[in-house]
Amino acid sequence: MTATETMTAPEMAGVAEAAAMEDGGHQIVSFRLAQEEYGIDVLSVQEIILIGQITRVPNVPDYVCGLINLRGHVIPIVDLRMRFGLPVSELTGNARVIVLNVGSKTIGIVVDEVHEVQRIQSEQIEPIGSGMTGVGRQYVRGLIKFEGRIVILLDVCHLVDLDESPAPGASS
């Protein structure tokens, strides 16, 4: 299934559940950031939405694009490219926001393109060697070799550390 269209949580959860039941494997949503391919466990994904109007917030790290209104809830949007120090280019029409549930919070991440939902086996996940990607190791759960591609599986728990680094000016 390609996911150029938005997908609702129940659909995904359904897919994920079915997959988990069959073989105990993982189901990941893969997406593109700059020129790299990443994956996130589908169970953390609430939904995928188009990029709407983002309200900028002062006093927050650069990679926080701002806030959006998700059906009455105000959630932050994070640009993972900035977060990971990847080259940032203009977003195209393929860009989406993946809404994630991280702990008790709901956040959105901007990605250049959502690819698909893939089923993978646990043994397909390989630990990363040091210095393999530009991404800090703490955000990466492992690498998946997949049909000749390499997908970097992200660990959403550490993706956005919401309490980190007090905003500039807060401590001065």
């Binding site: 932050p76 919070k105 919401l162 000016g169």
Partner: peptide
């Protein structure tokens, strides 16, 4: 008033957010 810390964290100088009639978020 919507709390910023519900899904994000508090931002110094910002008391919260609200949603405007057109659906946009304002601080």
């Amino acid at each position: 008033i919507k709390s910023l810390s519900e899904n994000f964290r508090n931002v110094r100088g910002v008391a919260g957010a609200s949603i405007r009639g057109d659906g946009a978020v304002s601080l």
